[in-house]
């Protein structure tokens, strides 16, 4: 190969190489614009309420714990690299009737319509409080739970008498309204 043809070959190579570089940079730019940090949450039941009644039909027995598992939380999440999110619950309005305890637990996300890093659920029930958010699902990365009624993190509310404060229970002619607020938020 003589000198001019070697130069031409080198020039051709560098043009091809730089062309490839431009294409890659352009694709990378679009990627960062499209994949926004996303985090959305909804339920299948809201705004219709979760309803529970505490009672007994046997003389001598305590009012029985009662559960409601109508509710699923649905999530869409895209996280920045290395970060995770959690779902927390708090009583944001109203008060759980005296002498009773309202507990909440989540089952792992349903698998049929979900994908991604769905995190792990807190395995023991939390007692819902007015004063602090408590985690029910943690370690959520980029994922989606699915949209149908029975997709998502399946929640179970359990309402029960507090044995040591049983004497504080009052019959209520009207149902007591309590608002539970769920938040999906970053761990960082």
């Amino acid at each position: 190969m003589n000198m001019p043809s070697a130069f031409l070959f080198f020039l051709l190579l560098s043009v091809m190489f730089s062309g490839e570089m431009i294409a890659q940079v352009s694709a990378y730019d679009q990627f960062t614009i499209v994949v926004n940090d996303k985090c959305m949450l909804s339920t299948n039941t809201s705004p219709s309420p979760v309803s529970m009644t505490l009672s007994t039909s046997v003389a001598g027995s305590a009012v029985s714990p009662v559960s409601n598992s109508n509710m699923y939380i649905k999530v869409t999440s895209i996280v920045p690299t290395g970060s995770t999110r959690k779902i927390t619950a708090i009583i944001s309005n109203g008060t759980v009737p005296a002498g009773t305890i309202l507990n909440l637990i989540s089952a792992p996300c349903t698998s049929i319509n979900s994908q991604g890093a769905l995190g792990s659920v807190v395995s023991t029930p939390i007692t819902l409080l007015k004063t602090s958010d408590q985690t029910i699902v943690d370690g959520i990365g980029s994922c989606y739970t699915g949209l149908s009624t029975t997709d998502g993190y399946h929640l179970t509310f359990t309402w029960q008498p507090d044995q040591t404060n049983y004497y504080l229970i009052n019959a209520t002619p009207v149902a007591t309204a309590v608002t539970v607020t769920f938040t999906i938020a970053s761990n960082n």
Binding site: K38, C39, M40, L41, S42, T43, T45, S46, P47, S48, P49, V50, S51, M52, T53, L54, S55, T56, V63, M71, I73, K74, T76, I78, S92, V96, P97, T100, L102, C143, Y144, L147, F157, W159, I169, N170, A171, T172, V174, A175, T176, A177, V178, T179, V180, T181, F182, T183, I184, A185
Partner: peptide, 26 residues
Amino acid sequence: SSPGGLVSAQKDNVVETPVKVSIPSV
């Protein structure tokens, strides 16, 4: 993963659920 139905809420990352609890007299 961005279905239209979910985007309408003002704060996408918060949802409120009413819970109604009743204690009849026994």
